[in-house]
């Protein structure tokens, strides 16, 4: 589904990612871990097409197409979803209106007619329940005045609405209390199918108690320095990142 080969990414002339290789297949959950500043969020943003990041080398193919040539909106419409670490507020735009616009853009891309009002409401209701989002929240403006936990729930809600092929969740667990964490994780698990895939970016192991990854990768100084099964996360939890740092100095 996703093949990243020797990906180099810079911002303002400074190289952040220094040759990433990663393959994600349908049905898999990958966790990317690493200390602060290792390039985790850069990888997520670069894959989503944020233009402040310059791709200096390498290739990324998504569903057998060249991802790097697509506009950010086309990447989204093709099924790539990014759950933001810091979701932005869009004052005056209700979640309902925002989601309807987004879904209709996806449908237009696939050559479908706009969604009917009743189908849309049904979908909203179903997905709201999935992540435990209340109607009082969905009637508000996108992320405006939301707590940290509400913002993250809203990201998972949008993911549920758009049903992506590949979801990249950037530090979705940061700022969540244990209950919110569980709800978010349950949402992700319920959306897991054998024809989609998830990349979970996280600093801590605790999210991975709830979302069980097939693979764990450690990103350090712009490179994946270690890849293994789930047990790697536990080892990191126990020993911290220092031994990785030492091994790679």
């Amino acid at each position: 589904m996703l093949q990243i080969k020797d990906l180099h990414v810079s911002i303002d002339g400074k190289e952040i990612l220094k040759g990433i290789n990663l393959e994600v297949k349908a049905g898999e959950v990958h966790a990317i871990m690493g200390p602060n500043g290792s390039g985790k969020s850069t990888l997520a943003a670069a894959l989503a097409g944020r233009d402040i990041f310059e791709i200096t080398n390498g290739s990324v193919s998504f569903l057998s197409e060249n991802l790097l040539e697509m506009s950010p909106e086309d990447r989204a419409r093709k099924g790539l979803f990014l759950g933001f670490q810091y979701p932005v507020e869009i004052p005056g735009v209700s979640i309902v209106n925002f989601m309807k616009t987004a879904i209709n853009e996806h449908r237009k891309f696939k050559g479908l007619d706009p969604i009917s009002a009743s189908d849309f409401l049904k979908l909203m209701r179903e997905k709201k329940d999935l992540v435990g989002l209340t109607s009082s929240l969905t009637n508000r403006s996108v992320n405006e005045g939301f707590s940290g936990g509400e913002k993250k729930k809203n990201e998972i809600f949008q993911m549920a609405m758009l049903q992506p092929t590949l979801a990249i969740l950037d530090e979705t667990d940061s700022g969540l209390d244990i209950d919110a964490l569980r709800i978010v994780a349950q949402g992700v698990n319920k959306l897991r199918r054998n024809d989609n895939a998830t990349i979970v970016i996280t600093h801590y192991q605790r999210l991975l108690e709830h979302i069980v990854p097939d693979f764990v990768h450690v990103l350090y100084k712009g490179k994946i320095v270690k890849s293994s099964g789930r047990e790697l996360a536990l080892e990191l939890e126990e020993k911290g990142y220092d031994w990785i740092k030492e091994d790679n100095e």
Partner: peptide, 23 residues
């Protein structure tokens, strides 16, 4: 970019944001 990432192109994103601002 947030709008783009949800599949909304820049022109529509601006329209959405402006109309929200002026709502």
């Amino acid at each position: 970019f947030y709008c783009n990432q949800r599949g909304i192109d820049t022109e529509n994103a601006v329209g959405l944001i402006i109309n929200g601002y002026a709502r």
